[in-house]
Design a protein around this nucleic acid. Structure first.
Lengths: 207, 207
DNA sequence: TAGATTGTTAATCGATTAACAATC
DNA sequence: TAGATTGTTAATCGATTAACAATC
């Protein structure tokens, strides 16, 4: 029986990982997969995978496993990846460039739809086929293209200001590369992707 | 009384965040801080902060708060950031370049000490003052500079192979930007920093 | 059918938060 | 001193894992 429990944060973090592996299976024409096999490949406990998947419906067949296509389709739906997901990127520095040019998103139905920077000398220059736009155009572009997600690759001191603008223009999710905590309303979600803190916590585990 | 409980994963994730804020306080010559004030600024429950800090010693003064300098010094020690942390970077593509050029690590005592790529045409070219080296030099350089951490900015299909090499050369922590799960021995730690899955899980939270 | 594998429950583990005595 | 704030315990919450009946 399908359920309507709320899906936990941890599950939402794992779904893209499942999706990635399942998409790979599609490519190599595997049609069925067991939680056991997925777990082996992704280093996740099979019971966990079954529980995760059971949280949003009855996808498996006892004795058989899961139908790969069916699972892919459903995880896409859960994650709201069925339509193209458009994202704005703010901060056309080195990292912003790198992320924009990384076109592997496309196959995952994610598109960087606009790029902004506050440096006047960069305006109009193209990055990955998109012109760098002025911050003053943000409101308009976000509304026009109905964008809900943003990537921030700005310096730490600019992060809160940029974030406030994005939120006021209707952005609901922010991937923040700036090395600073930002404050957002409860209905906006921030994921932190700061390289330094990531390395620093990694350092703890050396020997 | 100082304790020797093992420090949990969640705590280790938060320590760099605390450290960042405390370093900022040092800069603006604030000498004392309460868990309340830290919590406000970092969006962390004050009780959690007190518990986290208490896990590795008695750092606060009742009625007063914490000594900023003392705390900075101790968190650095816990995270093994007292000596310069040297890191290798493998994969001198866009993202590798961006990360190498981001020199904000330096003030955090982290240094990218060598860069490798398997593309012969890139060899010897300089990135952030470092020559791109051939993969065949990895073993030697890692041993010579006594490096324990690595950043992987390689394509997904190369990730496991590169990872296996790194591990065999003594690397104990890997920050993996490739969009793929990698297998490592128990004594090696991997942090995942793949942009796509991060965006995909963010998409779930839209409205 | 017999073997395999799910869905689900119960047990366990870990992380967060509230509350307050101790004390600066 | 009185107010503030820690350190710590207990309560709560959430996430993981083991185990197994159901069933393909």
């Amino acid at each position: 029986m399908a359920k309507y429990e709320k899906i936990s944060e941890a599950v939402v973090r794992r779904l893209p990982i499942y999706l990635r592996y399942l998409s790979y299976l599609q490519q190599v024409n595997v049609t069925t997969v067991s939680s056991q096999q997925m777990g082996m490949n992704l280093d996740v406990n099979p019971a966990q995978i079954r529980k995760d998947l059971a949280a949003f419906g009855d996808f498996g067949k006892k004795g058989i496993g899961y139908d790969v296509n069916y699972l892919v389709e459903n995880i896409r739906q859960i994650l709201k990846l069925t339509d193209e997901v458009r994202v704005v990127l703010v901060g056309a520095g080195h990292l912003g460039h790198a992320i924009s040019n990384y076109n592997a998103y496309v196959k995952d139905n994610i598109r960087i739809a606009a790029i902004f920077d506050n440096d006047a000398s960069k305006l109009g220059k193209e990055v990955a086929g998109l012109p760098i736009q002025s911050m003053s155009e943000m409101a308009h572009t976000i509304a026009e293209k109905n964008i809900k997600l943003a990537i921030m690759t700005v310096p730490a001191p600019a992060a809160q200001t940029v974030c406030d603008q994005l939120v006021s223009f209707g952005i609901k999710g922010i991937l923040n590369f700036a090395p600073t905590t930002i404050k957002v309303p409860k209905d906006v979600r921030v994921h932190y992707a700061d390289v330094t803190s990531n390395l620093q916590s990694l350092a703890y585990y050396i020997t």
